[in-house]
Design a protein around this nucleic acid. Structure first.
Lengths: 155, 155
DNA sequence: GTACATTAGTTGACACGTCATGCATCACCG
DNA sequence: CGGTGATGCATGACGTGTCAACTAATGTAC
């Protein structure tokens, strides 16, 4: 195994680091922004958005977890915390005694509707406006390709 | 404010989601991979790599924080945890009574040297191999542009 | 129906990151 | 020298994420 197998080249290194840093900064910045305007974390936001996309604002845990691609346990913890803050509520499932629905509360709906425009504007100003439409689309394509790769490469 | 200002277009939405998901999955996957092979977290890895890049494996806290672009307090917590595990040690700074050096221990060095090749191989297989060299370089350029944008847009 | 595996969701322990705060030490000015 | 602010780092509280273990209901086979 030579150096080019074992390590990244200088160019690769640079691209890779920029890519990773970008993610860290972006998530930190978007999270802080959300928090300061709406008392929501990025996680809260993602859950609430998924719930507004759904009729009755009501979903089974499993379906929600799949929709946003989260582990079951992570979702469970998150939901519990959000219920405490009256953003969500739990509803037993009649068809399956084990299951449960997550329901968005009125307060949850108000909160997400108030937060979304500002958040989207921030995403625009930080990311989309940094690139041309073509570049942004290209970024999307590359991301999708890498996502496929990750799903395909078995652990 | 019309819809195109307030929300993302369908294409933008798709690109944006892919981009965000990609990072989430990638970080999760790389972290799990590192953990299973070397008992290191992604954070451990980043710190150790920075320390191997430096003469004597010894740096001031500030410099390290700047190098890896972390908040001071985050670094402080991380270092403390790593010292407990004998990956690093602390050394008082003679020139500045407030300051301190972080030093990589022999065990830390062994660990990172054992972990790096496997980790790099994983990065290759998950990311770099999914793209052509040109595409990967393009990804790096786009990342750098967005990073600049984030740093420029004042809070 | 009883036994066993599967599935839905919960929980506790622990690592991680952020924020605000605390506390020495240093630098500088008078 | 003494005071004052800035700098370097630590710490506690808290929200978050992962892993492994757990409970309870469901499905399946006999």
């Amino acid at each position: 195994m030579n150096d080019t197998d074992q390590w990244l080249s200088a160019d690769e290194q640079r691209s890779w680091r920029a890519f990773i840093r970008l993610h860290q900064k972006l998530v930190a910045r978007l999270g802080a922004d959300l928090q300061s305007h709406s008392k929501l974390s990025g996680a809260d936001f993602e859950v609430l958005v998924a719930l507004t996309d759904v009729p009755d604002g009501r979903v089974r845990f499993q379906d929600l977890a799949k929709e946003i691609d989260w582990e079951q346990s992570r979702l469970s913890h998150q939901i519990r915390r959000m219920i405490k803050r009256d953003l969500l509520s739990r509803k037993e499932c009649a068809e399956d005694g084990r299951g449960a629905f997550v329901v968005i509360t009125p307060h949850g709906r108000e909160t997400i509707e108030a937060a979304a425009p500002k958040h989207v504007a921030t995403v625009r100003s930080l990311v989309i406006d940094a690139l041309s439409a073509d570049e942004f689309a290209e970024l999307g394509r590359l991301s999708e390709r890498m996502l496929e790769q990750i799903d395909n490469v078995s652990k």
